[in-house]
Design a protein around this nucleic acid. Structure first.
Length: 456
RNA sequence: GGCGCGGUAGCAAAGCGGUUAUGCAGAGGAUUGCAAAUCCUUCCAGGGCGGUUCGACUCCGCCCCGCGCCUCCA
């Protein structure tokens, strides 16, 4: 039985889908005005892992991850670059897809873009006004009247009074309550705009997810996810909009992943302490990055540093090393088999990937003691559920690092030369060859089946 | 100020009221021409103070420290 931590209830709960056997999940994706950083990588990988586990558990999953392709920062960046905002967003959507694919992230079933849903958003805003939950202001903006939504604050555990006490934003004079948020933003001259009953403008940020979620998954669906920083105000406002406009429960389970940190501080655009996925992939194998992310529990903070990536690489190397030289058969997982059962128990407990990975290491140790090929198949199958160990071991072990002056062919030639030297008991020559390769980051390992090599 | 999360061995990171987490690093041994990989053995824990309990890293309270949200943010 899958249990997951529901931010709305602030506790782990048994997962019961609305429709038996089916899961409908929405995750807030990226605002596309720059390259994705590691924090974005975490959202991509974590919810990919969650989707894979739901599917492995037998659910049919509909996974929606949106793209915010219109907002202030996009307009600003496009103006700075002197290009149409659509050119900017398309470029970074393409980059995001490339980064995600590198990290082994499967494409969501739907990837709606905000600009495609302006009509649906206007419908919702209209409904909110009719229900007395929103009001147009004289400046052409439309605001949500937070005080009219009785349960506002349910997700973030904040009361309106507390929020007012902590208010530190300049108050918009057109808002009836400083905490009211914008649904529709009047366009300034020259800005991208769509026609509306309240004048030309563009949607506020929060309304897009309400509109896209209900359109693709229905007004009431199972899981809504995103980074912890979206819990308030974004997700709180989504609830107010969706439940306000539709008059029914919006989402049953809210999932929030923890931050990636640098020097114990949140990695973020505003702090400027971020590393893009591409920067990291220039130094580390994408699977190492994926492993690094899954090695921590999805709700825990994850500190980024080269040392931690090096650790992840060493750990992943151990798994691939265990599989080396074994013809692993394709195995259909029997979830009653002891290792598989432990793995499942870990994953069913709020997606406990650290413990699930520990099971893989136990299996690898078993394999190293002379286990059967079937166990190698099981190791690959279980790891595959997490999107790991899907390559041939040699491809991982020999693929890392820079090729430099040593191609695989050149290394083979040197190995043969060393072999001949060893046969002739010319150990100084054979050691010289190994030292030469070692200096280039290539390790030789003599075994019963001959000499194997890998890049460090 | 309000609300919330966390402090585990050298580093990273989990579960668990009593039994080896796991990976890397360290020590000893096996193996190896030498190595590497692997195996065996082993060292190193649970911020502080109280409480509950036969027994707490695990539950409760207080304190200290760190972090997050309350403003765009994954």
């Amino acid at each position: 039985m899958l249990k997951l931590y529901n931010s709305l209830a602030r506790e782990k709960q048994a997962f019961v889908p609305i429709e038996p056997g089916r899961v409908r999940m929405y995750v807030c994706g990226m605002t596309v005005y720059d390259y994705c950083h590691l924090g974005h990588a975490r959202v991509l990988v974590v919810f990919d892992m969650i989707t894979r586990w739901l599917k492995a558990s037998g659910f049919e999953v509909t996974y929606v991850r949106n793209v915010t392709d219109i907002d202030d920062k996009i307009i600003k960046r496009a103006n700075e670059n002197g290009e149409p905002y659509t050119a900017l967003t398309q470029r970074f959507i393409d980059a995001m897809h490339a980064d995600g694919a590198a990290l082994g992230v499967q494409a969501p079933d739907h990837e709606p873009r905000a600009t495609e849903y302006v009509g649906k958003m206007l419908d919702m805003i209209r409904a909110l006004i009719e229900r007395g939950l929103a009001y147009p202001a004289p400046n052409g903006d439309v605001y949500y009247a937070v005080g009219k939504f009785a349960t506002y604050g349910q997700l973030s555990g904040k009361s309106l009074d507390d929020l007012r006490a902590g208010e530190r934003v300049e108050v918009d004079p057109y808002k009836r309550d400083p905490l009211d948020f914008v649904l529709w933003k009047a366009a300034k001259p020259g800005e991208p705009a769509w026609p509306s009953p309240w004048g030309d403008g563009r949607p506020g940020w929060h309304i897009e997810c309400s509109a896209m979620g209900s359109d693709l998954l229905g007004r009431h669906f199972d899981i809504h996810g995103g980074g912890q920083d979206l819990q308030f105000p974004h997700h709180e406002n989504e609830i107010a909009q969706s439940e306000g406009a539709h008059g029914c429960k919006f989402v049953n389970y809210w999932l929030h992943n923890g931050f990636v940190r640098v020097d114990d501080e949140k990695m973020s655009k505003s702090l400027g302490n971020f590393f893009t996925i591409r920067e990291v992939l220039a130094k580390y194998d994408p699977e190492v990055v994926r492993f690094f992310i899954l090695r921590a529990h999805y709700r825990s903070p994850l500190n980024y540093s080269d040392q931690h990536l090096d650790d992840a690489k060493a750990a992943l190397t151990r798994l691939y090393t265990a599989l080396r030289g074994i013809a692993a058969p394709a195995v259909a997982i029997d979830w009653h088999e002891p290792y598989a059962a432990s793995f499942k128990a870990a994953m069913d407990d709020d997606f406990g990937t650290p413990e699930a990975l520990a099971v893989l290491f136990d299996l690898a140790a078993e394999l190293n003691k002379g286990g059967e090929p079937k166990q190698a198949g099981l190791l690959k199958a279980l790891a595959g559920v997490l999107g790991l160990l899907e390559r041939a071991p040699e491809a991982f072990l020999q693929g890392g690092g820079e090729e430099g002056d040593y191609s695989a062919e050149r290394i083979e030639v040197l190995i043969q030369e060393r072999l001949a030297a060893r046969k002739a008991k010319d150990f100084s020559r054979s050691d010289a060859i190994r030292d030469e390769l070692k200096a280039a980051g290539i390790v030789l390992e003599d075994g019963p089946q001959g000499t194997l090599w890998r890049r460090e």
